[in-house]
Nucleic acid binder design. Structure first.
Ligand SMILES: [Mn+2]
Ligand SMILES: [Mn+2]
Ligand SMILES: [Mn+2]
Ligand SMILES: [Mn+2]
Lengths: 224, 224
DNA sequence: ACATTTTTTTAGTCAAATCTAATATTTTTT
DNA sequence: AAAAAATATTAGATTTGACTAAAAAAATGT
């Protein structure tokens, strides 16, 4: 049984997250940026994780999590997300206040603790941000995706994909500041043309046409 | 605002505990023993804590917590004991299962977290072992002491003092394995002579006379 | 194709926390 | 009071995780 330090777990979590949205290859700069260190430190850590069998590594050619690495990452995610549910549901934290604390709590080691916490929280399947919580064997449920167009007023969700990936569409999204991972809330729906007024990331308001909102896929947040 | 590492907090906690009890001076061996390190490491850490103003230190002449050190220690105790209450009351841990986990959780840093946790638990004044929980300003309540003789059947508590400290009495206690800090449970009371059958440390059964049980002071555990 | 820029890795340094072995100081015994 | 034992401190090494500066490799632009 390999045991990772808090620091190693933080790297692993970031590498897992960045390699999930595969698409582009991820580099030491991305990791360093996500974890607030320098690329040189990332190189060091990557070599260490490779030795531990957490990932495969070829110099100058990026990293690839092994099955063991993937499993381990999922357990770290599980722990952090269970704490997030606890903080929001039981201690009434705002959903944007939980990350700093959950980022510390996720490193606590105790299988019993997490089994009991899971039970206590009613075996939640998703964290307060809509992200799935892996079970002890690393399985998780995908949250169903729906069209932004089909959301109701006041519902909130997170953008997860687009069904039109033409350059023109992506350029438009970029221009208006809509991106994968952005949080959206429906403010109003116009009957006449099916256009929507939405709020992006709890701040900017925006109007989008029916054509646009039909090509954006979201995961709805739990109604709380 | 000084910030201590988890390791520094562990040392501080042990030093506080060891200097609370007996007036006997505590040494590097005691600390090393309590914290599972070597005396040399203790010397190093003590110098570091002295520089931080946590304690006064004269080489070869032991340590003395400063007011700042005492206040800080109380906050670490507060955090750990709040978690202990959580683990026992909410996650149904046995009271002897909590220390390892609470020893990790106590180092999480987040004032909001502990304010909310305290509230969530109903502002408990004592942890599952009967130890007092300091409030945010370091105040705590002493748990009332009662005579072992006055406990009722099935009640449990912790031995905290003796009112007869004659050598003969202490020698007797030593012989039958009763000591300060031992957990006791009343199994039976004999009407005829006021003697008691007790269980010590969840294991050994023992009969004690009324004379003996009147001179042993205990703190009762919460009835759960 | 080659020069420039960007990214990644290595080399060398540092601080924290530990250890073992050696030394210094205090305490206890004779 | 000196010797022996116990205790505490220092010296020197190691591990982990970070950094800066320099070198190497890959990607990009003309
Ligand atoms: Mn973390
Ligand atoms: Mn989350
Ligand atoms: Mn601890
Ligand atoms: Mn306790």
């Amino acid at each position: 049984m390999i045991s990772l330090s808090p620091s190693e777990e933080n790297y692993l979590k970031v590498i897992f997250r960045l390699t999930q949205n595969e698409a582009l290859p991820i580099g030491t700069n991305d990791i360093a940026n996500a974890i607030h260190t320098k690329p040189a430190s990332v190189s060091d850590m990557i070599r260490k994780l490779a030795v531990k069998g957490i990932l495969d590594y070829k110099k100058y050619h990026g990293v690839h999590l092994t099955e063991k690495g993937r499993k381990t990452a999922l357990q770290v995610l599980r722990r952090g997300r269970l704490w997030e549910v606890f903080l929001v549901e039981k201690l009434h934290f705002q959903w944007d206040q939980v990350h700093e604390v959950a980022g510390q709590l996720e490193h606590v080691r105790s299988p019993l603790l997490f089994r009991r916490l899971d039970e206590y929280l009613g075996f939640p399947k998703f964290d307060p941000h809509g992200d799935p919580i892996p079970d002890e064997s690393g399985e998780w449920q995908e949250k169903p995706k729906s069209k932004l167009q089909d959301m109701k007023i006041a519902e909130r969700g997170k953008i997860v994909t687009v069904s039109d990936s033409s350059a023109a569409f992506l350029r438009y999204l970029d221009k208006v500041g809509v991106y994968i991972g952005a949080k959206v809330e429906i403010l109003d729906k116009v009957e006449f043309d099916g256009s929507l007024e939405i709020r992006v990331d709890e701040s900017r308001k925006l109007f989008v046409s029916k054509e646009v909102s039909s090509n954006i896929l979201v995961q709805l947040f739990d109604v709380k």
